[in-house]
């Protein structure tokens, strides 16, 4: 009886009690599907050959084939490249904007709202907007023509590099505001006493930023980078709208790969194995990446 009372009286235990129904529901709903995914990942199931329970159990064949699948490996590397380029740029721009706009000035609310607008656009719509912008006779080429004074006619989606650049620019346009939002809210919430004390003690603006503000922003920075990296790893909408993974397979990311191999080539077993492989890898990376966050109160 005392044990039961503990669940109500001890705050940490009560907290767990409150989330338990949701956790249980989620597990009851998700676990059978997750277990089924593991089973399917070890089969060669394709709906064209019958139902999943009729598929052949092929042990680790899918996983072995994935290790030698140039398209799968290419898609992973390409996705990492996008994450590796977009997230740092979004971070830098978001942070810079947040720092600049964290002071008081007239029209601050309006400016912040304008900066946040891209984030509110549905990604597929964002992709379509940029698709139109990057067309050969679109505004991007027109603008470049005006700036350079020459007839600028790049077919952006026809070359692997320019196609990838156009996708990354779209991602940066849409998700820099997310970084900005996290950073500006964190900066505005910083306790002012240590900052003021630093200035009073004669520290410069740069020194105060580096030694006082930045350490206090460590947690939001990590959260922002981890969240954006996870989201950027799943990039799909822009690519589907703008390039369909082309030219060839040169803008195919892991989500596009899973979609194409799963739903176009109807290789459900194989794609499930690929998803599980990615899930395990991401879980391991995520575990280590979030290590510094654990224990943060």
């Amino acid at each position: 009886m005392a044990g039961l009372r503990d669940w109500i009286t001890i705050p940490d235990k009560f907290k767990n009690l409150l989330i338990m129904p949701v956790q249980l529901t989620m597990n009851i709903v998700a676990m059978p599907a997750f277990a089924l995914a593991w089973y399917v990942g070890f089969t060669n199931w394709s709906p064209a050959a019958g139902d999943w329970w009729e598929a052949n159990f092929i042990f680790f064949d899918n996983f072995i084939n994935l290790a030698g699948d140039q398209y799968f490996i290419g898609a992973i590397l390409r996705t990492l490249l996008i994450v590796g380029i977009c997230v740092p740029i979004e971070f830098a721009l978001g942070f810079l904007l947040a720092y600049v706009l964290s002071g008081d000035f007239i029209g601050k609310k309006a400016v912040i709202t304008i900066i946040l607008v891209p984030m509110m656009v549905v990604p597929a719509v964002g992709g379509y907007i940029f698709y139109l912008m990057f067309l050969e006779y679109g505004p991007v080429n027109a603008l470049l023509s005006i700036v350079t004074g020459t007839d600028f006619r790049i077919a952006w989606f026809n070359q692997p590099n320019t196609a990838l650049i156009s996708i990354m620019l779209t991602d940066i346009w849409q998700w820099t505001p997310f970084m900005f939002l996290i950073f500006i809210s964190s900066m505005l919430a910083l306790p002012q006493d240590p900052i003021n004390a630093s200035y009073v003690l004669g520290a410069s603006r740069g020194y105060t930023f580096r030694r006082v503000m930045l350490p206090m922003l460590r947690t939001p920075i990590m959260i922002a980078v981890i969240l954006r990296s996870i989201e950027a790893f799943k990039i799909f909408d822009y690519i589907y709208i703008m390039t369909k993974g082309g030219p060839g397979y040169t803008t195919q990311t892991i989500s596009m790969y899973l979609y194409e191999w799963g739903f176009k080539y109807i290789r459900f077993g194989y794609v499930t194995a690929a998803s599980l492989l990615i899930f395990i890898t991401m879980a391991i990376i995520g575990w280590y990446a979030s290590k510094p966050l654990r224990g943060v109160k």
Binding site: G246, G248, T250
Partner: peptide, 23 residues
């Protein structure tokens, strides 16, 4: 034959890559 969509799409993707000079 089964896999018609996959055969044709594979060809199309590779032809597209060749059109754009990657092979």
């Amino acid at each position: 034959v089964r896999g018609g969509f996959e055969y044709n799409t594979t060809l199309s993707r590779n032809l597209h890559a060749a059109q754009l000079g990657t092979m």
